[in-house]
């Protein structure tokens, strides 16, 4: 039975069919890749570049990065501390969700972009302590509105850096290339 299928596939019509099927599969895959690389829709088109241009430090809004695993989102109160003094906030369409949040007490629902899978235990603190800057991983925020990952954050990318930084230091190498450093 299976032999008949393969015989049919070897004749010209079969080859065309295989070609079409392959093309369909390929374009589906290409679309799949394109689709999953799109940054997600955010409730507010948050202009990072504007805030950075005002001279606000990353750690002002994301202070957790210095202390532990999660850099954290700024609280509504922190946004409001500045924005309530800015007249445009009340009228801006862009900022309507923030105003709404302050009025109703319902938090803004952000969508995190720089994510690692559940089985990776990532900690910001040692990276900052090792002298890395935010833009080393997250890209140049002076040019971004809503955040986009500058590269695919996968294990190869992590390990490349770990290897570079630990080269020549056997103790550090053991630590930084150990599976148990990130996976448990």
């Amino acid at each position: 039975m299976i032999k008949r299928i393969f015989d049919w596939l070897r004749q010209p019509l079969g080859l065309v069919a295989v070609g079409i099927a392959f093309l369909a599969l390929f374009s589906l895959a290409a679309y799949g890749i394109y689709y999953t690389q799109q940054p997600p829709a955010q409730p507010i088109q948050f202009p990072h570049k504007t805030h950075v241009a005002f001279g606000i430090q990353c750690l002002y809004c994301h202070p957790g990065a210095e202390r532990g695993p999660s850099p954290g989102l700024p609280s509504t109160a922190k946004c409001w501390a500045c924005h309530q003094q800015i007249a445009k906030t009340q009228t801006s369409l862009l900022l309507a969700p923030l105003v709404e949040s302050v009025r109703t007490g319902v938090p803004v629902q952000w969508v995190p972009v720089a994510q690692v899978p559940d089985f990776v235990q990532y900690n910001h603190r040692p990276h900052i302590a090792a002298g890395l800057n935010c833009e080393d991983c997250h890209g140049d925020l002076t040019k971004m509105t809503i955040y986009e990952n500058p590269q695919v954050m996968n294990m190869g990318w992590c390990l490349n850096c770990h290897k570079e930084k630990s080269a020549g230091n056997p103790e550090l190498e053991t630590k930084l290339l150990d599976c148990g450093t990130c996976h448990y």
């Binding site: 899978p117 089985f119 053991t174 150990d178 599976c179 148990g180 996976h183």
Partner: peptide, 15 residues
């Protein structure tokens, strides 16, 4: 199932 050189533990890498 690998050995952690840094902590000398038996690891189970779930992924």
């Amino acid at each position: 199932a690998v050995h952690s050189q840094a902590e000398q533990l038996n690891l189970q890498v779930y992924n």
